[in-house]
Amino acid sequence: MNTAAGWAKRPESRTGVRKQRNRIARRLFSISAGFIFLVLFAIVTMLVQRSLPLWQNVSLPDFLTGRVWKPDQGLFGLLPFILGTFWTTGLGIAFALPLSLFSAIYLAEYARPLTRTVIKPVLDILAGIPSVIYGMWGVLVVVPVVQTTVAPLFSRAFPGIGLFQSSNPTGFSILSAGIVLAIMIAPILIAIMYEILLAVPVGLREASMAVGASRWQTIKYIVLPKATSGLIAAMILGTSRALGETMAVLMVVGNVAALPRSLFDPAYPIPALIANNYGEMMSIPLYDSALMAAALFLLLIVLSFNILSSLALRRMLQ
């Protein structure tokens, strides 16, 4: 009788152990998931806390609209850097958008399976290349081309249009940074846009073609309107990637803290400002605070872009 009870009990208790282990694991795992939010929270709070001393000497509007950045005189005007960031990013997106959109449409709507299997690794490799390599390629290829060919050509072809006038003898410019950025974010954009286009139901395409529309008409009148919000979300995601890109841009943009007037002017985006100056920021009062405030400004923009695009993309792809 004892043995019978033992037989009956043993699996019982083992099940109990397994269940308890399961409960403990569940508790531990859920705590570790909280760590994710802690990291996000810590990044924001640390930057806020470190930038606090600055606000006692400089007001927020002065910081964001000031044109002069002279840390040794206590002048912290971020405007040249903000404009530098927006110019390079805007140009990068402007170049990358048509390139990516056309590529993604072709891959999703026209390409044979073979083409897709060939392109996939190409995009993966492009997305995996480190930004210093892009920067070096920019220095070796893009900058000389801009310097010797593009800048003189545009200056001559569009006299009187300030945007195309070159007063910069080097090729280190907004245009070079925009080209390099475009190449860097294009693979990401193509991959997301491709997925969004595939998420448009096949039935819609079939219905459109059944009433006699051509493939391109189907894309133009059915697929693209349906995918618009997703494509915009992809663009926002690409923009936030470009906003924070540091090394590649720093290497080709010239790093001159002035308000840019032309595509061929050098600029000084915020990430480059942080990367170039962290070494000396501890020796000048408020300098570190100002750099942290700049980093915070960048972070807040990128965060809001990210949240926006992630939410929209999730809705699209589900």
Binding site: P271, Y278, L299
Partner: peptide, 17 residues
Amino acid sequence: LALDVLWGIPSIVYGVF
């Protein structure tokens, strides 16, 4: 969502952090 947002934070900000 939090992970996607973390993924998008620029590496220079991680450097500062």
